[in-house]
Simulated assay, not measured.
Amino acid sequence: MESEGTHLLSDNNYMDEKPEVIDHSKSNESTLAMLFSPELIKPTLLLWVVFFGNAFSYYGLAHRRLAIKMFSSLVLHFPGLIISAFTIDKLGRKGSMSTMFFLCCIFLLLLMVHQPQALTTFLLFMARICITTTFMVAYIYAPEIYPTSVRTTGVGVGSSVGRIGGMICPLVAVGLIHGCHQTAAILLFKFVIFSSGVCVMLFPFETSGWELTDSTVRETTTTLEVD
């Protein structure tokens, strides 16, 4: 039989043991670093531009002086939902986003010429519908380009970059509008939106019909049937 002193000694040794401390900061740093791995750095940077362009143009086109007598946001989101649901499978994620970005540029281009107020309102209405559609498709596409291990981080960081665009917009573009430089403001919006459309076309893969994966490497080739 074990003596009472043996029990006390074993209990004391147990109490002296320190709990294992897990440094979550290192795992978070490694997860963030994966976004800049050779396989993910290109889609990550392109996604940042798309999120930035979406938020910048969305909140800029919603400004009360630029979007005169615009409909409410709820009315704008409804056609955006319908268009995104229709085009996302017909044109794919990349096709639907790039098409809406470039259509938005066309609507804004027509605003460079003096138009009746009713036509101006219609063009702005259509431009914001296009941006609303790209916003919705971007949030569908973003989780699909990342593997499971970094999906939350990748989408979260991209969304944060978009919020930066939303914060910068009132300081830059809306400031031009208040300074009676509406043409310069439209040109700025066109540049940001066009750049976002080009970045969408540069994405290395289309995820339409793909399942979420744990791999950082996407297969871009099709499987040939063997007779």
Rank of each mutant, 00 (worst) to 15 (best):
M1Q: 12
E4L: 10
T6F: 03
S10A: 12
N13A: 09
Y14A: 11
Y14D: 14
Y14H: 08
Y14C: 07
M15S: 09
P19E: 04
P19W: 10
V21M: 09
K26P: 14
N28Y: 14
N28E: 11
E29W: 15
S30C: 01
L35Q: 02
S37C: 08
P38R: 03
P38A: 08
L40I: 01
I41L: 04
I41N: 10
L46C: 02
L46D: 00
W48G: 09
V49K: 03
V50F: 01
F52T: 03
F56I: 04
S57W: 02
Y58V: 10
L61K: 04
A62S: 14
R65Q: 15
L66P: 00
S73V: 12
P79R: 08
P79V: 00
I82V: 11
I83V: 14
I88W: 06
G92D: 14
R93L: 06
M97P: 07
T99G: 10
T99M: 15
F101S: 05
I106E: 00
L108E: 12
L108F: 05
L108P: 13
H114V: 11
Q115K: 03
Q117H: 14
L123P: 03
L124R: 04
I131D: 03
F135V: 01
A138N: 07
A138Q: 12
Y139T: 05
Y139L: 00
I140K: 06
A142R: 02
I145A: 06
I145E: 00
T148G: 13
R151G: 04
R151W: 01
T152D: 13
T153Y: 04
V155N: 03
G162C: 03
R163W: 11
I168H: 13
C169M: 10
C169I: 06
L171H: 06
G175L: 10
I177A: 05
I177S: 11
I177W: 10
H178F: 07
G179K: 05
C180M: 15
H181S: 08
Q182F: 10
A184V: 05
A185E: 02
L188F: 00
F189H: 10
K190Y: 15
V192P: 06
G197W: 05
F203D: 09
P204H: 12
E206Q: 09
D214A: 03
D214N: 06
S215Q: 10
T216F: 13
T222L: 13
T222V: 14
T223E: 15
D227A: 13
